[in-house]
Nucleic acid binder design. Sequence first.
DNA 1: CCGGCGATTGTCT
DNA 2: GACAATCGCCGGC
Length: 181
Amino acid sequence: MKRKDLEAAADACAVALLGATLVAHGVTVRLVDLEAYGGSTDAASHAFRGETPRTRPMFGPPGHLYVYLSYGVHHCMNVVCGRVGDASAVLVRGVEVLEGEALVQRRRGRVDPGHRLDGPGRVCQGLAVDLALSGTDLFSAASPIRLRSGARRLDERVASGPRIGISKEQDRPWRFWLEAS
DNA sequence: CCGGCGATTGTCT
DNA sequence: GACAATCGCCGGC
């Protein structure tokens, strides 16, 4: 996983990121459920209406984190993948917990089934990611949240389908997840 | 300036 | 299956 690998179309980035590892605040997870969001051409994207203070990281360099607050309650995280000015990103919708399960359970206040965090809000809660981390460089050694390449398992295939919870661009099959074969 | 709504989730019926 | 919680953004006045 290199920063340069992220400089591609959002859907290709999502597929490339499947199986990658994310380490944050004592917890290691594997990305298994992702959604791609484009820039000015994708009406479902936060970047569609241009840059705002909130969406600024989306317009910056790839390999950085974009975090937003959903419904005033839950945090959701994205990996910025477009080059500067492109503003596309990949939403982390589901992960498999590899290390730090006890920390995740404490933060969640419950035990999630299957060593998984399913749903963007749950992912951020388990990894203790909030707005303060928006804009963080995922490839910096000093960063509290870091992205690493991960070998995709051979017994899994990439499945795709429509994105969840959006009202526009519903026909785009830009949700990608790993499925046991 | 105000009102509606969203890339959601937990709880209750 | 319905609904509340809760806040930033955007469109309309």
